[in-house]
Each structure stands twice: as structure tokens, then as C-alpha cells.
Design a binder for these strands. Sequence first.
DNA 1: CTAACTAAGTTAGAGACACAAACATATACG
DNA 2: CGTATATGTTTGTGTCTCTAACTTAGTTAG
Lengths: 203, 203
Amino acid sequence: MSEVIAKKGYHHGDLREQLLTATRVLVEAKGPDGFSVSEACRAAGVSTAAPYKHFSDRTDMLRAVTLQGFREMTAAIAGAAEGRTPGTIETIAAMGTAYIAFAEAHPETFKMMFAFKGSTTEMEEAGMACYATVLGQVAIWAGREGVDDVVLGLGFPLWTFVHGLSFLRIDGKAKPPKFTEEVADVVLDATGRLLAGTGAKDA
Amino acid sequence: MSEVIAKKGYHHGDLREQLLTATRVLVEAKGPDGFSVSEACRAAGVSTAAPYKHFSDRTDMLRAVTLQGFREMTAAIAGAAEGRTPGTIETIAAMGTAYIAFAEAHPETFKMMFAFKGSTTEMEEAGMACYATVLGQVAIWAGREGVDDVVLGLGFPLWTFVHGLSFLRIDGKAKPPKFTEEVADVVLDATGRLLAGTGAKDA
DNA sequence: CTAACTAAGTTAGAGACACAAACATATACG
DNA sequence: CGTATATGTTTGTGTCTCTAACTTAGTTAG
């Protein structure tokens, strides 16, 4: 009755999932190190030993949140490109803005995604898939067949810029007077500058 | 005798300083959340209650490391500009490279510096001082009297880029095939692009 | 249908930690 | 010389992760 989340009896039925969402919420609220397994258990209404039937340890719970984060971010970025003209500066910039928006919406998860020690193959792949989405658009812009060294040379600085702005926004460093413009405008401008005059488009 | 660090008797004489360096070492070795007060005590050869005569709590110990980090980074960046022609792209890029070098040399401290919750006025000032050093050079480049909106508009993207590259390097994302060039070259190129053609130099 | 197996919970407890309170000692200053 | 204060120690409390042993509920074989 007064449980935070319904339980079906002795067997919970859906504990893994509910622990995962509890973990997600707690991580965003208190950060990965502020998160405690015990608190997640309280939220799900189970004993403190229950999670160990579903996760190997505390880190494993965080790992699951991290992986989920990568998947969501990739989807968000791909979604930002949909309905736009492929290979334009505007489309590439829109993906960058989506990246930053995700970071701002889930700051603790975002930071954890990149700082995570002992990342799984799954995580690496999810990260690569995300990056590949952007690189594909850059390749079109540059008139290249696939993702070659030229495309990497163009795409990496873009990622760097967007990644940096994500962190500065998260940590509250991108506020007036340092930062008075809209994020989307800054990203669009920087994308143009970092791509322009490279000669790649003519090769 | 077998103490890690010499003690002068019942009174340590220099405990605050030694705890601080122990904290620094441990933070770099295991990250801010892996760091434990107890372990710092073991390193300094004192009881686990001793630190509380010098620091209010665990967080306060981390805060001290953070502040020290800001000071060192500012010095490193200012040092990179010395002996160079003021207001050139090369000088500005050299400061960016020094920023990244600091981040790579002290990754955990660097991350903590920006993620720290409840930063002191001292910390804010140290951070501002650092940023101001770079902005001063940008102002000279742009032919401006002081740090006005134009200078901020030029300087912020530079910071963003350099900050982003710092994180990517720390987290091992800036390795081949994503990243094949030297850091200094990439920074110099990006600095040029992000400043060039803004018209600010002519104003 | 029931007996055995297994999946998914429980309680109890070990070991590490942050921090507090009360106590001890050395140093500084009257 | 002696007392106050700074700086240590010991002891204890509550929280945390994780383990071991036990319990209960589904699931499957005969």
C-alpha cells in the first residue's frame, strides 16, 4: 500500500527494472558517488541484499545506467538530423546542439558516461555509433565517400567543441557575462568556422 | 622509523600540509570518490580523527586540493605566455596547450575543479584569474582596450574548445584513429579558425 | 499431483568508512 | 612555573557495501 512502487508479494516481478530507474533518479540527484545501493533499495521497497541477485555490485548498477545513457543520447542526436537536409552545416550543428541538450538534461549521467572506468564493449560500441552518426554527415558535407582521415580531421574538432560546451554548461561556467548567446547560435557559428576554408569540400 | 613520513613526536608539526599532499596523491590515484580520509591518515601516520583538527570534513580536504589545483593551473598558463609575443595566435594557442597539459597531468584534480559543488569565493577568483589571463591576450589580438563583449565573444569559444579537448584526452577518447595529430597543432589550428574572419581585429 | 529444482527474495553479520565526544599531551605565554 | 590552547589519541555510533545462510514461490519432470 504505502510502498513507493507496487510489489506483487514475496517475488517482486520487476525488480531489476525498478532498481535501474531508482538508480538513474538517484544518480541525477546526488551524483554517482552520492548514490547508494541502500537508498535505491529503500525506493524499490526491498532489502539491501536484493540487488545482488540482479547486479554483480554497485558499479554494475551504475554501468547499466551509463549504457542506457549512451543509447538515449545516440537516439537524440540521430533524431535531430531527421527531416533536415543531409550534409549541411545546419544539420551538423543541430546534432551538436542535441548533444549539448542531452548533457544538460542528464548532467550526472553524461559525465559518468565519459568518466566510467572499465567500460564494456557494448558501451564502446554505443559511443562509436553516436560519433559515427555525426561523421556520416560531415562526410556528406565534405563530398567524401566514407569516413576517411579527412572526415576524421574535420569531425574531431567539432566533437571537441561541442563536448567542451557541454561541460561548461553543466558546470555553470557558460552563464553571463561569459556567455550571453544562445547555445544553438554558438554551435552553428563554431561549426561553420571549424569546417570553413579547409579545402576539403573541393577535394 | 618505518613511518611513510617523519613525525616529530606526539605533535606532528606539519600535519595539515602532509595530509594535503596525501590527499592529492590519493585523489589522482583513485579519484575523488575513491579517496578516503582513513587512507590519508595511514599515509601520514596519524589516527583517523586527526584530520578533523585541520579540516572540517572530508569535502574540505578535497576543497583544499581543488583550490591548489586552480592556482597551479593559472601559473602554468601564465608561464606559457611568457617570452612570447603578446596578442598573437601562437601565444593564445600556447596557453590553450598548457591548459590541456595541466588537465592531462592532473586529470582527477582537473575534473574535480570544475565539478566541485559549493565552491568558495577563493576558488571562483582563482578560476576567473585564469580565464582573465587568456582574455587579456585575446583583447590585445583584437586590438581592444580591455575585456569587453567582443573579447568575451571571441574568448569563450576558445575556452570551450580547449576545455573539450582536455576532457577527451583525459578520458582517452582522443586517440587514433579519432585523433592522429599533435595536441599543439590541433589547438593552433582551431584557435586560428575560431578567431579568423570575425572582423574584430579591424574594429 | 506432487516432488524436486531453481529463481528471487529475506535476515544477520563482517569489515570499511566518516565523523563525534571525551580524553591526553605538548607547546606558548602569563 | 603553571595554566590555556592547539593538536593529537581512543573509543564509539551510524551508514555503507557485500557475503553467507536461509526462505519462499514458481517451474518443470515423473
